[in-house]
Nucleic acid binder design. Sequence first.
DNA 1: GTGACTG
DNA 2: CAGTCACAACGCACA
DNA 3: TGTGCG
Length: 586
Amino acid sequence: MKQPMKLTMQDELPLGKDWVYEVKFDGFRVILTWSIDGIELTSRNGKDLTEKFPEITELAAIHKPEHLPLKLDGELVILNTAYQANFPLLQQRGRLRNEKKIMDAAEKRPATFIAFDILHEESSPYDRRRADLVERLTPLTTDRLRIIDSFHEEETVQQLVFLHLAEGIVAKHKQSAYNYDQRSKQWIKFKNWRTIPCFLTTYDEANDYYGCAVYVEDEIVSIGKFKHGLTSDQSDTLRTFFKENGKKEATIWSLPPSVCVEVDCLEVKDKEFREPLFHDFRFDLSPEECTYLSAEWDLAMFPTNVEVSNSEKMLWPEQSKRNYLLYLRRIAPYMLPFLKEKKLTVIRYPDGIEATSFFQKHLPDHAPGYVGAWGESGETYLLCSNLNTLLWLGNQASIEFHTPFQKAGGKDPDEIVFDLDPPNSEAFQVAVLAAKLLKHLLDELGVQSFVKTSGSKGLQVHIPIPEGAMTYKETRRFTESLAGLLERERPDLFTTERLKKHRKGRLYLDYVQHAEGKTIVAPYSVRAKASAAVATPLFWHELTDDLRPEHFPFHKMIERVETLGCPFSHYDHARKEQPIQTMKTL
DNA sequence: GTGACTG
DNA sequence: CAGTCACAACGCACA
DNA sequence: TGTGCG
């Protein structure tokens, strides 16, 4: 694996030039002018240094610009990311009139758009045109855009793209206007490569494609082929190797597993790489080490600096830690926004959900540096502020993630949550009814609310509010009145009675649970139940007669959010629109 | 799951 | 070295 | 008043 070079972006960008970086390399200060056509290397007085630093020149040839630091406040404007194949805006510049086709592509692969929200006063007409397009994208797409909004301030776009497993970044120079029919050097693409180890099986001399495979158990399974990315030397060597050691059938040479390589790609689908590119040889690997399991891990882009132990241990009757970690990796962009600013309580099950568990809210001494922390009156608490922290906690067998109602350091709640917990899981429908009635009441008040399964027996209704808008005293009064209204409406089903013996199997409207210091399970947290159920954000229309908490185990969650989107995606937006005065005077 | 402490 | 322990904290139910 | 549960 090549080490990324340290680069610093120059403050001043000469207009009409491409991107210019100053590079410290071997003690020399090198000016690196980078454009879509390649890289120019010069000294500070303009002398050509291409010969002197072939390493950098090679970097240009290999064209792996993801090593460059992209900051939002730099001179680059991030436009979006797009599937080259299915959202060919950039290939088809000048064909925006073919809007139907683009929209169809967006419908098919909506999750691929990311980060298009930076418009400047000097935006070109093209920018505005695209902004208009974004307004009308599928719900999923705009959901993801909003999620990303909440990260923008402190994260680089590269981190975002990595977190979201996006395709990459499309950027342009701030002052660049869009020109029809002209390929501009001021537009650029950064790809978020997945690097997959595999071994070579075939070479087709008719089209120069090399076939790649991995092991599934003892079986050799093809995962795709590549053609590009080899230097001419590598290309010659490989071709010769196949012809000397392989067997030929028609135009195809085949070889038993021996040569291991890494291939860059964007995904593997139907046993084919998408946008494959030869990365490098891996002479240190044996073919047996190239398994589908490891390829799956690399395709998920699991951060290499988070150590994983005991990955085959079963944490649920039917789910291993490995699968759990892959879930966390992929749900992270949806889950982290609900965790990152709040003191965290995790429940850990080191030997699985049936063995002993314990709570943890303090930062252990041995936690790696990337783990988020919050210091308060001499204590250090856990803060799940980034992907690595989430995964580290996951490896620690943290299964349930609970958060308080206020942000770390704040004293007022930033959300109100009704816990609709039926007396037993057979009475789940009572919780469904309660949630519907509650929704009706809240709608009448103009309050926006969100519902999720608790993953356990009941449902929880969330109401986001701006931090500082209400005190706990005020939210308490609000929840108390609503609980009272519900109880009056269906005294046969609901009760606010604290004493269990007086509840008589009715659903307890636990408004006491909403108080300072209490916690509630976070959206997308898995629960320690045999079904591996998730505390799943729902769309209101999903509250039906056959809804069951067990319908949402974690291994079904990724497909769910990627096809339906996140029902809580407007959470932060709704927060600002709540009729606080009405709520206070209820 | 991990480090610290205990015999 | 093997075994054991800690890793939250608060109200409520029940005795 | 103590202990156990959630």
